[in-house]
Design a protein around this nucleic acid. Structure first.
Lengths: 228, 228
DNA sequence: GAAGCAATTTAGGCTTACCTAAATAAATTA
DNA sequence: TAATTTATTTAGGTAAGCCTAAATTGCTTC
């Protein structure tokens, strides 16, 4: 029989919690092993194993029932938000203070988020003037885990042409991010959206910028809010 | 039989290389397993094990002969210096940009040095104006591993009373560092050294500062150069 | 209601970097 | 030189966090 205890303060556990948080969505629905396996790039069996250990641990971070998926417990949610806070503060810091190009902040933050101290977190937060948003337009959770409600909608859900403000852009795909930036599609920009076909959107930021064709499959990388 | 290959890009290997570099001294003498074990806080058998793997690896980072100690190869030395560069740049950055108290920079840098990218290194180096010394007065190795020769001497080797300039202070012992700072004993300070007994030194920085009694056992934490 | 299928879990392995205990080698002392 | 002490290495083991292959479970669908 396998051991029943885990050390909960590992990079690995943090990544599981982050993934459950992200996949659970705002409704915090149960997340399946398969979805987690895909997200974390790990075999489904490894997921089961880790979830069993996490659930069996005294400090319960997740609620897990065999074959019925996982959810974060309040403690797990708080931890996930702490890591997210680290991540987004780091991204902001790399962008604002160290002049990283936006498409490179994610990977660096992804590595460092696990290793910075509370003091480091506090100091960059102070240095940046307690920012509320990272350079992608994502909001930075407060120390107690609070985040203001989201009022943006995914470009993927836009049904008719119109004018919007870019709320945020996804940080995972560096190449896409670079192209979006090159066309002026950055948080806060005015954006003219027209749907050329079932395949793609045509986007134009400001009037100087060239039009940009974005396949619908990537449309979820851009979130919008109405332009007043 | 144990495996003959190691992944050389691990935090652990970096720490071994750093320790060998530090213990070898400027003459780069062979370092014993016991000394390494003590420095790294690990059982002697674990040292033997790791050294055998390191030595057997194709990319030879160390020269190791059974029961005769280890030395760094040129490649190992370069790697150790890269890590040392990371460490000292980070310390400088935490101190100058993030306003850390000097006694806290070491531990944070010790953790982060393994995870920052070349880009991060370059950016903090640029931000700091390509510094040559860290806040403890230690010189920062160049990208190619070069370091200017040291012209300081340990307080422990001082035989007669006199006036000196504080060259550097050791970074490992936070409590001591804090006390030294409180008495004005920081790199660049003028220092009056008198030897009260076989047990301790009496140190006075500037004339405002209070005298500070430092046990001889800790004297190696302070390095001096002559005051012109 | 049985067959087929996809998702999930169990079982058993591997690697890394540690550990302890026992064996061996080298150095010191009598 | 023989005996003792100390340093080092060998041998065998552990915990994490991953893996693959082989069950198993819980649906669908006929």
């Amino acid at each position: 029989m396998t051991t029943r205890r885990v050390n909960l303060n590992t990079e690995s556990v943090d990544n599981y919690l982050k993934a459950i948080f992200a996949l659970g969505g705002p409704e915090e629905e149960r997340v399946s092993s398969t979805a987690l396996a895909e997200r974390l790039g790990v075999a489904p069996a490894s997921i089961t194993n880790m979830l069993q250990k996490l659930a069996a641990s005294p400090k319960s971070l997740v609620e897990y029932e065999s074959r019925r998926g996982v959810r974060l417990s309040p403690a797990g949610r708080l931890r996930a938000l702490e890591v997210l806070r680290h991540h987004r503060l780091l991204e902001t810091f790399l962008y604002e203070v160290l002049d990283y190009p936006i498409e490179e902040v994610h990977d660096e933050a992804e590595r460092l988020e696990h290793f910075i101290s509370e003091r480091f977190e506090e100091r960059i937060d102070a240095k940046l003037g307690r920012p509320k948003f990272d350079p992608h337009g994502h909001c930075i959770p407060a120390l107690d885990g609070k985040m203001p409600a989201q009022h943006s909608k995914s470009l993927a859900d836009i049904k008719e042409d119109g004018k919007f403000i870019v709320d945020s852009v996804a940080d995972g795909d560096a190449a896409l991010l670079k192209r979006l930036k090159a066309h002026g599609i950055i948080p806060g920009a005015r954006l003219l959206v027209s749907s050329s076909s079932h395949e793609e959107f045509i986007l134009r930021a400001g009037r100087a910028a060239q039009a940009f064709c974005l396949p619908r499959s990537l449309a979820c990388a851009v979130r919008l809010r109405s332009s007043d």
